[in-house]
């Protein structure tokens, strides 16, 4: 019988990659290293109630003990992390995740003060998945109905004249199947389970030193629950968190991205790339989004330039590792 039973609550179904390849093995590893003194019960698919935006609060208040959630679901809550959501920030999920975790450990103590942070990480950079029209240049986005992944990217696509629509992930597949949407912007990791690769004909990937955009995730534990663990069990948790864990999760997402992409290849879809001069043109075109972010953050009394620079240099650091 375990001494400590921890409830891990998250939103994705049990068959998802995050559940089966990341959370379940993580839980098993912690259980094994604690010699069975910690037992982690997984509750996927919001089984403990509430909606995904409430996952963070549930762990903060101890309704669940551990959670894994998308930071963007609670806009305004983690302003410092939004630097990683800017266009042309992310590198591979591995490097970006490790950078984000170090950034969180040094810059985000106040934003994370209510929980015990295990790791922050990102997914692999997203791509364009379009139904009818292949997107070869930015001009091709003009007038298309584009589902943006978040508010920052929604502003970005408007620069290209796209008609941005924000709809829940659950609506997306049926919207794209009949053309209510022309383009979805997502990582392949989401394209695979939603079967969007069967509904679209074209994919456009960004090929340069950085990817188009990413989202950040928070893997966190209730503070009191962590504090109540004896030192040796805290060490088990510590051994399974931090920059190393962030890198591990990032690698999982990078590998799964390639796996998921292979389905689109097998489907016989076309692939286009934004590279070279076009890549530079995109970067220039989306520059106003970065400037607006700097302005907004400065208005809110953050040292926006410093944070941006720090995020950039951390990504470079882990890229070269």
């Amino acid at each position: 019988e375990a001494e400590f039973t921890l409830k891990l609550h998250h939103m994705l179904p049990p068959m998802s990659m995050a559940h089966s390849k990341f959370l379940e093995p993580w839980a098993e590893k912690v259980e094994a290293e604690s010699n069975g003194r910690i037992d982690i019960e997984l509750y996927p698919a919001m089984q403990l109630g509430g909606k995904p935006p409430q996952l963070f609060d549930q762990v903060r208040k101890g309704i669940s003990d551990i959670t894994w959630t998308v930071g963007g679901y609670t806009p305004g809550r983690f302003p410092k992390a939004t630097v990683f959501e800017l266009p042309f920030m992310p590198s591979t999920a591995k490097a970006t995740s490790m950078a984000l975790q170090e950034y969180a450990e040094t810059e985000m103590q106040d934003e994370m003060k209510d929980v015990h942070l295990l790791a922050m990480h990102t997914h692999a950079p997203g791509s364009f998945h379009s139904r009818e029209k292949a997107i070869k240049t930015g001009a091709d986005l003009d007038g298309l109905k584009v589902r943006a992944p978040n508010k920052i990217m929604s502003e970005g696509f408007k620069e290209f004249g796209a008609n941005t629509i924000f709809m829940p992930v659950t609506e997306m597949a049926s919207a794209i199947s009949k053309g209510v949407l022309d383009v979805a912007v997502l990582p392949y990791e989401v394209v695979l389970p939603t079967k969007i690769y069967e509904l679209v004909k074209h994919h456009t990937e960004i090929k340069g030193d950085r990817g188009l955009y990413t989202q950040f995730f928070i893997f966190a534990m209730n503070k009191d629950v962590y504090a109540d663990l004896p030192a040796d069990l805290q060490k088990v948790i510590d051994d399974n968190s931090g920059v190393a864990l962030a890198g591990h999760i990032g690698t999982l997402f990078d590998n799964y991205e390639q796996h998921a992409r292979s389905y689109a290849v097998k489907q016989g879809n076309s692939f286009d790339y934004i590279e070279g001069a076009e890549y530079d043109a995109w970067k220039a075109k989306l520059e106003p989004v970065r400037e607006e972010w700097l302005e907004d953050m400065n208005d809110d009394d953050y040292e926006a330039e410093r944070l941006l620079e720090k995020a950039e240099s951390l990504i470079k650091k882990y890229e070269s590792m």
């Binding site: 609670t74 806009p75 305004g76 809550r77 508010k151 929604s154 924000f166």
Partner: peptide
């Protein structure tokens, strides 16, 4: 009250 203190808001229209 807590929702207000934590600035809980919608994604696009805030």
């Amino acid at each position: 009250l807590e929702s207000r203190d934590y600035y809980e808001q919608t994604m696009i229209l805030e």
